Simulated scan of single mutants.
Amino acid sequence: MPSIMFSRLSAVLLSLASMVSAHYGHGGQYGSGAWGGYGPYGGGGSSSNNAFANGQFGSAFASGRNTILVAHGVLAALAFVIFFPMGSILIRLASFRGAWIVHGLFQVFAYLVYTAAFGIGIYIVQNVPINLLDHYHPIIGIVVFVLLFFQPILGLIHHFQFQKNHRRTFWSYGHLWLGRIVITLGIINGGLGLLFATETGFFAPSRDQIIAYGVVAGIMWLLWVAAIVVGGRRRARANKVVRSDASYSSYTASETSSKRRYV
């Protein structure tokens, strides 16, 4: 099952990459030179010190600048709007044996997708003529990337501690709440990235694109929160049944012992 799932996800990513390349690469609607028409750094600007026009970008970056920016945004959005929430929803609602393994593999895959987006972001930061690290979007992206490093570690500790103690521990709550914070922050940062692109003029998204991201991200976030609530209620009911059974067993054992004592 995991192999089928990952093959399908890989096919989706390849399809998206092909669409991005065809649409934003050389010869596409937003191909070479398209970035130059936007904002204070675009080719349409009046400044004679135009960074793009004067070739301050490396040739490799300039030739595929739109593809690079779109790839960064698409991969990060896939990670935080689709893959991370879906992996979390799965572990909350699924009940098949080995669900935690599928959950872990799903989240690792999402982490790798975001790592690719993060790497592209670092490349962009190193190749633009302004200091992007003074802005909120890249700073939040770095914080999210660092926090995500600890998530699989906490997840493994949570799993083994839960198997040992049959209850949640400090590590469990650390894993749960770090994941909730990071996913929410990642979704918000995606919207901030669109705003950042608009403010700087770096391949400014259209109003429809911003609305589309907001709608899809909002729906996925609500579905994810709903899964957390439903999963929490299921767990509470299951724990209540277990406690009732334990109390009944204890009562039965006590009654049996008393009868034997007075027979």
Rank of each mutant, 00 (worst) to 15 (best):
I124P: 03
V182D: 04
S46G: 10
S88G: 06
N66C: 15
Y136H: 01
R243M: 12
A11R: 03
G64D: 14
T198C: 11
A51E: 05
T256F: 03
W171A: 13
D208T: 09
G27E: 10
H26V: 09
A236Y: 02
S250W: 05
R97V: 09
F52R: 00
L147K: 02
G174Y: 02
A11D: 08
G155T: 10
F118R: 08
S21L: 12
V242W: 08
V81K: 04
G55M: 06
L148C: 10
G232N: 03
S15I: 02
A110E: 12
N189Q: 06
I187S: 01
Y30K: 12
G121V: 14
Y114M: 03
L148A: 00
R237Y: 09
I140H: 00
Y173V: 13
G193E: 06
G27M: 01
H72E: 15
S63R: 02
Y248V: 15
L156N: 14
S172Q: 00
Q163E: 07
V143N: 02
N165W: 10
A62D: 14
H159R: 13
V125A: 08
I153W: 02
H26Y: 05
I210G: 05
I210D: 00
Y213N: 02
I181H: 01
G191I: 07
S59Y: 01
F6G: 15
Y41R: 15
L154D: 07
H159V: 14
R207W: 09
L223C: 03
V146P: 06
Y173N: 14
V263W: 09
F6Y: 15
F61N: 07
I210C: 07
L222M: 11
S258M: 12
G201A: 09
V144A: 01
G190T: 03
L75D: 01
G179Q: 00
G64H: 11
R97C: 05
I4S: 13
L112P: 04
Y136C: 09
V225M: 10
W35K: 04
V113Y: 03
H175I: 13
A94W: 03
A34W: 05
G36Y: 00
H137F: 07
H175T: 15
G44R: 11
S258Q: 09
A217T: 08
F106V: 13
W221H: 04
Y123G: 11
V229S: 04
F80W: 10
S7F: 07
G73N: 07
F160E: 07
L194F: 12
F57Q: 11
G39K: 05
A77P: 05
N54V: 04
P40C: 12
L194V: 14
R167E: 11
Y262A: 07
I4H: 14
V230I: 11
A51M: 05
R167V: 12
N127D: 10
S7L: 10
P2D: 13
F202R: 06
D208S: 04
N127Y: 04
H158Q: 12
S63K: 07
R168N: 09
F80E: 15
A238R: 00
L176Y: 02
F149G: 11
Y111D: 06
S249T: 13
H159Y: 15
A76F: 07
Y38G: 04
G28T: 04
S258K: 12
